[in-house]
Write a protein that binds this DNA or RNA. Structure first.
Lengths: 244, 244
DNA sequence: ACGGCGATGGCACTGAGTGCTGTGAAGAGA
DNA sequence: TCTCTTCACAGCACTCAGTGCCATCGCCGT
């Protein structure tokens, strides 16, 4: 792989001018080259800065920690997701909205399949990187949950629903994403994620793929044991419909 | 709080004999005393071992890292959960089984409310501990998901369902647990978790409280907007029942 | 007494991360 | 053109987490 094209830099502060700091990209490229050659833990920060030809102190100016260099674009993606959620109106279906937000993450991975696959292999075998990835995923999940908490404010069990649905969306997204990454980026990642998110939407009461132009034809199924009290049936219907 | 009673040690290797290593408990007690006094990051491992009156090397013999001393009982709880899941038969309802497994974690927290509340406050304000807690929670979630993957083997979307349900169960459990921890351990944690898990069970098609002694006489209610195609209704029923 | 043997303590080392200072290049203003 | 400011960078020194190695001590069986 070409090391210069494998490093998706964002450029933080110089973004307004459209210019990208070459140093950041150079550090990411050097780091991944060494990580793939000898492994993550066998590579020190001194090795990276030596290969990149910069001072050690500069590394920590661009990346707060050694782990951050493996996820150089998540900060921007998280900001994009928060902006996307904040831009939504009150008439949007909340669950569909967070599903669309999750698709933003997939798009970031799909923009650079080779890079994403290599990073996946790296994080899979290095426990420290796995732990770091969890904290990244957690921030996405928090963003979704906070949005849903706002939309569900006042509802019964609002925060519970928000947390559970956010977790389910993230889990479904990651299930499809990792399946795609395991296949070396072959296949249609978008379709896989759509299918996974459709399952979550169907489980939580919204129509999986609302036909925008057609009338909203919802189907709701309630399963109850005979002998259950009527209030339980009503409760189930309310729960499935997501109303109070 | 009494520092000697606040440290729930487990005793790993000496468990068979029933004896507990006092050193481990002493380290936990000393660590929490200092963490609460000056904060986690302001406390070095040298401070802890000095207070406990042991050598620095011994700390890392009992705890692989500084973070581990904050979660001294999770390793045992995780082993308990895996054993519980492995002991289940094939006739058990899978979702109910993982809900029961999640209740094991709650029980561990509820066994020592004062300790749990203090740890919660600690992890809430220290980013490093939050990240570590995520990796702990992730292992619980993996245990649940692996169990469900085994039970759902062969089903359509088996791994997807397993991952999503495991994530939902963990999220619901944590929602109730954290609510209980925020209230300083007041209220009925068990009831809160039961309610949260009941929501997840209802969302994923199983009856929340299956009456074990009665005959399984299921009733299916289908609510549909007129005009929905039949295949959509069938799809909903299959999805809700979790069959193929 | 003797020889393992496991738990502990001490020491030195690596490596991540931080604070501080010097330096050079670029830019604003006289 | 000279100067002053500013900012990114390099270099240094330091703290602290974590590890490997070895010496020591107490315990136990022979």
């Amino acid at each position: 792989m070409n090391s210069s094209s494998a490093a998706p830099g964002d450029g933080e502060k110089a973004r307004a001018a459209g210019a990208k700091p070459p140093m950041r990209d150079a550090l990411v490229a050097a780091a991944f080259r060494l990580f793939l050659e000898r492994g993550y833990e066998q590579t020190t920060v001194d090795d990276i800065v030596a290969l990149a030809g910069v001072g050690r102190r500069s590394f920590f100016r661009y990346f707060p920690s050694k782990e951050d260099v493996v996820f150089p674009d998540h900060e921007r993606c998280l900001a994009d997701m928060e902006a996307f959620l904040a831009a939504g109106g009150e008439d949007e279906e909340p669950v569909a909205r967070v599903c669309d937000a999750a698709r933003l993450v997939l798009r970031m991975y799909a923009e650079n399949p080779a890079f994403s696959v290599q990073r996946y292999r790296l994080t899979k075998r290095v426990p420290g990187l796995r732990a770091y990835e969890l904290s990244v995923v957690w921030r996405y999940e928090r963003a979704l949950a906070d949005y849903l908490r706002g939309r569900f404010a006042g509802r019964r069990d609002g925060t519970l629903r928000a947390d559970v649905i956010a977790a389910a969306v993230v889990a479904a997204h990651n299930n499809a994403l990792r399946s795609w990454l395991r296949s070396d980026g072959q296949g249609d990642a978008g379709a896989a994620v759509d299918h996974a998110l459709g399952y979550v939407q169907s489980a939580f009461g919204a129509a999986p793929v609302p036909p925008a132009a057609e009338a909203p034809e919802d189907v709701v199924v309630v399963v109850s044991r005979r002998g259950a009290p009527l209030w339980r049936v009503v409760q189930e219907i309310e729960t499935t419909l997501g109303r109070d």
